[in-house]
Design a protein around this nucleic acid. Structure first.
Length: 556
RNA sequence: UGGGGUGUCGCCAAGCGGUAAGGCACAAGGUUUUGAUCCUUGCAUGCGCAGGUUCGAAUCCUGCCACCCCAGCCA
């Protein structure tokens, strides 16, 4: 992906200007701060490409910082998955940090706030606090505990830390302005009591700092220059700046917000993804139907294709609803030039070539790629009995249908022209076998006396391997389930996974799960990294080929 | 009805006072032993709406309208 192809965006422009102006000594330091409470998804990929990408472009660094301030929601298991996904996307962090690394410093700063009369221990209940906060249009009112003395606050806060109170009994708040138009400035809570074990700090703490307080200080301690986050934090920026200003931190990162990605036919909220996993509506966080990075990886997407997608969608502050077609275009682009071509039949019917000698096997030397000779050749088996796809045969059809029709001819890809003579059906009227004859003068050349318009793919019935082939459709039946009226459970597409029992050409028996193939005329496929084994092949369809025929058919 | 944002082609998105980039999608042709790829062409007298400033406005000003975010001891 050549750099000059990157479209500009407003954040890149800001950073470029800062660097040109010598701000922060011309350095760029960013951070990616996931909370370890779930897997990363394609929306995070956008943020990752931005934060890591900006540091990369301006020769800076990026910290991977786990935002682990809420132990009741988080789990160390997610940290490994997150690291794997970022590394897989191809980004390198300078260092891994945890917000919890700063717990002691954060605590000391809190005492400092208390000593300056800028923080106080409130002993209201959560309900009282909510009531006193006011509403969007009504100012809040001061807590009765707002004017406790510095000494009393310090004593209480130290007792909080010492574990002398139960959860919820007290809370530490910043003393800002209960009448502020921005609700986030109405004496925000910064420390709450939680008697729970933390996955990083164990039982060292029973008070935990909140996001608004933790994030800006963590950024400053790491020397972050540009703190990029999504638009939902925009209204928190005044608080971010207030805290760092009050603390007179020598480093004051610039927070810049951008809009999050909305992608068609999926959900992007961690809460919903977590539910889908926990309610077993999908097969884990890496289910190929999910928009998680792990899911896309398992489905067969390449890191490049995802980075290309993030480049194509851009970075702005406007709401966006990106079409799935845009993502699919990226993976087709990535695989078109690189994926070796092979043949596989998803829904087989048998072809018997009656005039082809019984027991004869011809090895056909075929190119692995139609344009790239460097990708070499392989041999495929041609035999008397073959499988073709059910879609590629009709007993009767109009002229537009270019495949095998009873009484008509079609080219077998890389092989001979065959003619369909007789259709054999089972008791339920399903086509089972088609008896054909072949023209032995048509290997590698066209018949001179007639035109054969169609080409279909096939595999040898004797040499092909049976394979389970998993086809994926969008997980949701509507464009944007997140904004739909109904409960999203109602909108789940029960046909999102279709399993086919098909056959793939012999050469695929040595495929590895890293390989990606184009099954000619079908789409791009790869081995399922979890469920496939050499004696029970399982393929995932990454994406279908662009299907002009389907459009023609639909119109008719 | 408080505060903060956003509105440029069906979708994404450049543009930042000099007369609407690009990608996706779509459409029409060409090449093709993948109805794929590739190639060519087309696709906003118009930039949420209405006024105004200017020789000139998507870009500046004014006023509307629509949509999004914020009232967790979540992040």
């Amino acid at each position: 992906m050549p750099e000059e192809n990157y479209p500009s965006n407003f954040i890149r422009n800001i950073i470029r200007q800062d660097v040109a102006d010598g701000k922060n000594a011309g350095q760029v330091v960013t951070r990616f701060p996931p909370e370890p409470n779930g897997f990363l998804h394609i929306g995070h990929a956008k943020a990752i490409c931005l934060s890591f990408g900006m540091a990369e472009e301006f020769a800076g660094n990026t910290y991977l910082r786990f935002d682990d301030t809420n132990p009741i929601k988080e789990d160390a298991e997610f940290m490994h998955a997150i690291q794997r996904d970022i590394a897989w996307l191809g980004f390198e962090w300078l260092e891994i940090r945890h917000a919890s690394d700063y717990f002691e410093q954060l605590y000391q700063f809190a005492e400092q706030f208390i000593e300056q009369g800028k923080a106080y221990v409130d002993s209201c209940s959560a309900d009282e606090m909510r009531t006193n906060r006011g509403t969007l249009t009504k100012p809040g009112i001061d807590s009765p505990y707002r004017n406790r003395s510095v000494d009393e606050n310090l004593t209480l806060f130290r007792q909080m830390r010492a574990g002398e109170f139960a959860d919820g009994e007290h809370i530490l708040r910043l003393k800002i302005d209960m009448a502020a138009a921005n609700i986030n400035m109405r004496d925000p809570a910064i420390y709450r009591i939680r008697h729970v074990t933390h996955h990083q700090t164990g039982d060292a703490w029973c008070i935990y700092p909140l996001y608004d307080y933790t994030h800006c200080i963590s950024d400053a301690l790491e020397g972050i220059t540009h703190s990029l986050c999504d638009l939902s934090f925009e209204a928190h920026r005044p608080l971010y700046d207030w805290i760092l200003d009050e603390l007179k931190m020598s480093c004051h990162p610039q927070q810049i917000e951008f809009s999050r990605l909305n992608l068609q036919f999926t959900v992007m909220s961690k809460r919903k993804l977590k539910q889908l996993v926990e309610e077993n509506l999908v097969d884990g966080w890496d289910d190929p139907r999910l928009p998680t990075i792990a899911g896309l990886r398992r489905k067969g997407y390449t890191p490049d294709s995802i980075r290309d997608f993030c480049r194509r969608i851009g970075v702005t502050k406007s709401d966006n609803n990106v079409e799935l077609a845009s993502l699919e275009s990226c993976i087709r682009d990535a695989l078109g030039d690189t994926a070796p071509r092979v043949m596989g039949v998803l829904d087989p019917i048998k072809i018997i070539i009656d005039n082809y000698p019984q027991g004869q096997v011809e090895m056909l030397d075929v190119a692995n790629h139609p344009k790239n000779e460097a990708m070499g050749k392989r041999a495929i088996h041609f035999t008397r009995e073959l499988y073709i796809d059910r879609e590629d045969f009709r007993e009767s059809a109009n002229r537009k249908y270019k495949r095998l029709v009873a009484g008509g001819e079609v080219r077998l890809r890389y092989g001979y022209v065959i003619r369909a003579n007789e259709v054999i059906k089972d008791a339920d009227d399903n086509i089972v076998t088609v008896h054909c004859t072949y023209d032995d003068a048509t290997l590698g050349k066209n018949p001179v006396d007639r035109k054969v318009k169609g080409v279909i793919h096939w595999v040898s019935a004797d040499y092909a391997h049976a394979a389970e082939i998993r086809l994926y459709q969008p997980l949701f039946k509507v464009d944007f389930p997140d904004t739909a009226e109904e409960d999203y459970h109602e909108l789940i597409n029960s046909d999102a996974l279709t399993i086919k029992q098909g056959f793939v050409e012999h050469s695929l028996s040595t495929a590895s799960s890293e390989d990606r193939f184009q099954f000619e005329r079908e789409g791009y496929f790869c081995l399922d990294s979890k469920d496939s084994s050499p004696d029970a092949l399982v393929f995932n369809r990454i994406v279908g080929l662009r299907d002009t025929w389907a459009k023609i058919e639909k119109k008719a």
